[in-house]
């Protein structure tokens, strides 16, 4: 039992089943998708096997460029806002007694698990004319009458921040809860105020995990596919929405596959970057 290498087939038997499942249902689908991205699209929603770069060439269209730029812009913006709120929030959370943290964690997990559909619906209700916040503002006579605040860029940004917040808290929770409590204590003993301690000690100490979290949230935001449809206008559609749209409604699977491959490589590059950053952080210790 102390040997760390499996000997013979019986020892390897347990890993065969998960290996088969992951290869058949995860690697093979990706292989087929990669192949389809080179296929030829014919009129009427069909495609035939082939090898052409036409689907990738469409990336040069202004249509694709606009969608890509908009996706990047709103994902970065939402990620920065979310980190700016979630980092101090998670820091405060981890300074609480462990038993006091639990209700917050349950709440964060419950919101995290919520379907994007439900979040979209909830925000569109909250920003609507009949049930929304604008009633409150109108009642306080700040605006003449209640109005609909959705669909709009602001509504979409708000929804994305809401979607990303619990995810960010959970990414930041491990590094922040493992932070040595003596570090802020030392800073306080030396006379720094809590705010100074936070910005001049905690943030620099944790800049590695912070940057990693920023990238992870950015990639997470790129994956939003329902909020842009519920809270945004058609010009606010992100790449994820266009992939779904091409695959299901335009019946152009090859182009959808090409966009998905692009999005995957793009995300992998960023995730790889966080790993490199994380590795350097480990090495520095």
């Amino acid at each position: 039992m102390t040997d760390r290498r499996p000997r013979g087939l019986p020892a390897r038997l347990p890993v065969l089943w998960p290996a088969a499942m992951l290869l058949l249902f995860f690697v093979v689908p990706f292989g087929i998708m990669l192949a389809v991205s080179f296929f030829h699209q014919v009129e009427g929603g069909f495609y035939e096997p082939g090898f052409e770069l036409a689907n990738y060439a469409r990336f040069l269209d202004p249509f694709f460029g606009r969608a890509l730029l908009f996706s990047l812009w709103i994902s970065v913006l939402a990620a920065v806002i979310v980190i700016a709120v979630a980092f101090p929030f998670t820091y405060c959370l981890t300074r609480l007694r462990r038993s006091a943290q639990v209700p917050f964690l349950v709440f964060v997990l419950a919101v995290l698990s919520l379907s994007e559909v439900i979040i979209g619906f909830a925000w569109s209700t909250l920003l609507s004319r009949t049930a929304g916040l604008s009633n409150l503002v109108a009642w306080a006579s700040l605006i003449p009458r209640a109005q609909a605040w959705t669909p709009s860029f602001g509504a979409l940004l708000m929804g994305l921040c809401y979607l990303g917040f619990p995810y960010t808290v959970l990414i930041l929770y491990p590094p922040l809860s493992r932070l040595d409590p003596e570090i802020p204590e030392a800073s306080r003993t030396l006379g720094a105020s809590p705010l100074r301690t936070f910005f001049l000690v905690i943030v620099p100490v944790l800049r590695g995990p912070l940057l990693g979290a920023l990238i992870m949230v950015f990639v997470f935001n790129l994956g939003a596919y329902l909020l842009p449809q519920v809270l945004g206008r058609p010009q606010h559609w992100t790449l994820s929405v266009h992939i779904t749209d091409q695959a299901v409604f335009q019946s152009n699977l090859p182009f959808a596959a090409a966009m998905a491959i692009f999005l995957m490589l793009f995300s992998l590059a960023f995730i790889g970057l966080t790993m490199v950053l994380g590795g350097r952080q480990e090495a520095a210790r």
């Binding site: 249902f25 995860f26 689908p29 998708m33 994956g223 779904t244 999005l263 995957m264 995300s267 992998l268």
Partner: peptide
């Protein structure tokens, strides 16, 4: 990964 990628893989 963004979920739409895996979803499209499953679709094909």
């Amino acid at each position: 990964l963004p979920p739409v990628i895996t979803a499209l893989g499953f679709l094909v």
